[in-house]
Nucleic acid binder design. Structure first.
Lengths: 210, 210
DNA sequence: GTCTATAGATCGATAGAC
DNA sequence: GTCTATCGATCTATAGAC
């Protein structure tokens, strides 16, 4: 059936893209993993590039409405604590991505990292075109928590924060293995995010004169 | 002459690797840019994989001794300020990488980011084998600034910090373009690093009970 | 050491039978 | 919608003349 085939391709593709990158993943690998015919990818998605966008669309269509709801239900509070509350409110929508696919959260962030520097800006344009409103709203919320922070400082710190998240997820397998062997406990993605939120909140809210 | 050819290949390769990634850069692109023959890469380096390692080696051989010197000349000071001082002391060695190649600093960090998630751990092993002592010393110095911080918290925060740096450099072109168009001023890499240091210092030193 | 030429593998995409 | 078969392009790596 077509619907199953299409979803099977998406499942296989997102896994391989996240683990290996877009260029390093061939159509043959995808169709083999999805147990469908090689030609079906081009039949259903037209091209590899379209397939990549479809993989992202499945996540963003789930994530963005959830984030908008989280932002609406937020009590405005200033300072580090306000930022930390805001960031914590983003965790449930992120965790919810597990309903899209197994390990959906980590997969999505890995894909985001890959997309940021493998697709030469194509992805950034696609995201800002289709989901720009929600992203701008998120930035505004953070700015309202930190009214005295110059826009330029916030701009850089926001990207530093994204970098922390993307990198820790992209390298999550290696990092989790090291952490588990060093600290003798099982690491879940929720824990990594709980570690990340205070780091990012402190970094974002830090005074600029020191 | 052999020496020139070898260096020309390294110069061309590191530029293309940093901008496009390892897989997306072909030997033909490298040799064309270096204006040398296609076969000379395999003659001088044996394989593409060895070429990648040689590109990294040129940077680490310059960077690691400088970092060790910086750490030795550091007056131990605790807390956020101590971390910030330590991080600031790393900036000159990083800036000095411009002597290795044009835009050496950004190129190196971009390569690091690429290597972290394109080479399936091969690079991590290579780095820890050849330069692990210096890296461990750096971690110890930070730990000494933050004696009350659990090792596990520090572990995660260190990687969040690396992620911030790598991501901002990997996306530096896009980010710098946006920043320049939004804030109407030219952005230099020193400025990005000056923005980064307080962010990372605050994030690293933040209290764990909040 | 540097070149040409090419082997050998793999890729994305498509044509055409069913 | 799904399959086989294959085209045409591109890649890394190497053999062998100079």
């Amino acid at each position: 059936m077509a619907h199953h085939t299409k979803n099977d391709i998406l499942d296989a593709a997102e896994y391989l893209f996240a683990e290996q990158g877009f260029t390093q993943t061939s159509m043959r690998e995808i169709t083999t993993r999805a147990q469908v015919n090689l030609a079906s990818v081009n039949y259903h998605f037209g091209s590899k590039k379209n397939l990549i966008q479809a993989v992202f669309k499945r996540y963003f269509d789930k994530l963005m409405p959830d984030i908008e709801k989280s932002l609406l239900g937020l009590s405005a509070k200033e300072g580090t604590q306000g930022v930390e509350l805001l960031l914590f409110s983003l965790i449930p929508p992120m965790i919810n991505l597990s309903t899209v696919s197994e390990n959906g959260t980590a997969t999505f962030v890995k894909l985001l990292g890959r997309g940021y520097n493998e697709t030469q800006g194509h992805l950034r344009r696609f995201i800002m075109n289709d989901y720009g409103a929600c992203i701008r709203e998120l930035v505004d919320c953070i700015q309202r928590c930190l009214p005295s922070l110059p826009k330029e400082t916030l701009f850089w710190r926001m990207h530093f924060a994204i970098g922390s998240f993307v990198f820790s997820m992209t390298s999550s397998q290696a990092l989790t293995e090291i952490a588990e062997s060093d600290f003798h406990k099982h690491i879940e993605i929720e824990e990594v995010m709980s570690q990340l939120v205070p780091f990012v909140a402190q970094g974002l809210a830090g005074s600029i004169d020191s």
